[in-house]
Amino acid sequence: MRESSVDVAPDMKLNEVRAGQINAYNQVEANLQNPRPGLMSQLKVKTKVTEVGKTKVVLQNEKSNMAMAPNSNFNYAIPWGDTQLKAGTYTLTLDSTAKGGYHWHFVKNFTVTQKQINSLKNKINTPQQHNYLWWFVAGGILIILLLAIIIYLLLKRKRNDDDDKQESK
């Protein structure tokens, strides 16, 4: 329902950038906000994280075909993947486009402290590697034991057959 036929242009703001964790995976979280009552559709966000003053990209991410509701915000996640960030100051560069020719460009510095890194390490970060060695050892012993029982039973049967043949002579 609308009061006017005039479309309200969406706007985007970058509120906060910090290191965090969702679903046990470390990531950089950029809080994006649409403070206006305009809907953003076909939203595309492209990010890169570098150390302050350097050009080498540490993390990068791109997502498209997103939408953002009016008067809302959300944490855009940039997963660390196999990269382990060290304590220090980083720069997030975020470019975003939406349907209607809207474009936003943000550059924001953020700091990752050793305390944050330690707290993220204490949580489950990646799926645990399972050691199946003892399962293989137990399976091997079971197979050898079954083979020994089968051989014993076959030899016992052969001996009984030999004994029956000698008795019949």
Rank of each mutant, 00 (worst) to 15 (best):
T97H: 05
W80N: 13
G100V: 07
Q27R: 12
Q33N: 06
Q42K: 10
K54T: 02
N34S: 04
W135K: 13
W80I: 08
I117K: 12
L39I: 12
V57W: 08
Q27H: 13
D82T: 13
Q60W: 11
L32P: 00
L32I: 00
F106K: 13
Q33T: 05
A69C: 07
N73R: 09
N75I: 00
N31D: 03
N118F: 14
A67F: 01
F110I: 07
G81T: 10
S41R: 11
G100T: 06
I117C: 13
Q114F: 08
Q114P: 01
M40L: 01
I22N: 07
R18G: 06
G53I: 01
L32R: 03
A30G: 02
K44Y: 01
D82Q: 14
A87H: 01
M68Y: 08
E16S: 09
N34G: 06
V28H: 05
T97S: 07
T126V: 15
E29L: 11
G53T: 03
L59Y: 11
T83H: 08
V57D: 05
T111F: 11
A87R: 10
N75E: 01
T126I: 14
V28G: 06
N131W: 13
N26P: 01
K121C: 08
V57K: 12
T93K: 14
K54R: 09
W80Y: 13
M68K: 05
H103A: 14
N31Q: 04
G100R: 09
T55A: 14
T97Y: 07
L92C: 04
N31L: 00
T50I: 05
S41G: 06
K99S: 10
E29D: 11
Y25V: 05
T97P: 02
P35T: 02
T47W: 04
K13N: 03
Q114I: 12
V58M: 09
P127G: 13
A30V: 08
M66G: 03
K44T: 14
N109I: 09
A24Y: 14
T55W: 09
M66S: 03
G101Y: 06
N15Q: 09
E29T: 05
N31E: 04
L32G: 06
L94N: 05
N15W: 10
V52H: 04
F74C: 01
H130Q: 13
K121F: 12
K46Y: 00
A19E: 00
S119W: 12
K54P: 01
S119M: 14
K54C: 04
Y102F: 15
N118A: 13
